[in-house]
């Protein structure tokens, strides 16, 4: 299962970075979202994987619990990344509406490869 998760994180990262290197705002936003998933899952995995061991204390039985700390960190990270995405979306929109172009590179000759 560790291998599945690791490859998934790798694929998400690769996809995120590829999209971030595109030249229009929308793919970059998508890439950031992908990267966010990858990073969140990465952080979560630092608590190691466990099945059927939620960190909710059980007063009837002595059961195993997974590491709660990365979960708490990732929870706030998810919400914050929503805030970040929203701001970036707004910036992209404002830039597009003001300049009628959704290119992210400012350059003397648009279209030139950087």
């Amino acid at each position: 299962m560790e291998l599945l998760l690791a490859t998934a994180v790798g694929v998400l990262t690769a996809s995120g970075i590829y999209l971030i290197l595109r030249k229009r705002t929308f793919p970059v936003i998508l890439g950031l979202s992908q990267l966010t998933y990858a990073v969140n899952v990465f952080l979560f995995a630092s608590g190691r994987l466990a099945v059927n061991a939620p960190p909710v204390l059980n007063k009837y039985a002595d059961v195993a619990y997974t590491d709660p700390l990365p979960q708490a960190l990732v929870l706030t990270a998810i919400v914050i990344s929503f805030g970040m995405t929203a701001v970036i979306v707004m910036l992209a929109l404002a830039a597009y509406l003001s300049s009628r172009s959704d290119r992210i590179d400012m350059g003397p000759a648009p279209g030139d490869d950087a």
């Binding site: 690791a6 690769a14 970075i17 994987l49």
Partner: peptide, 21 residues
Amino acid sequence: DGVIAGAAGLGTAGLVYALMV
């Protein structure tokens, strides 16, 4: 770009796998 992204993905995957085991 694909090569760069692939390398980054490979590195991340390796890192998280090494961490988890």
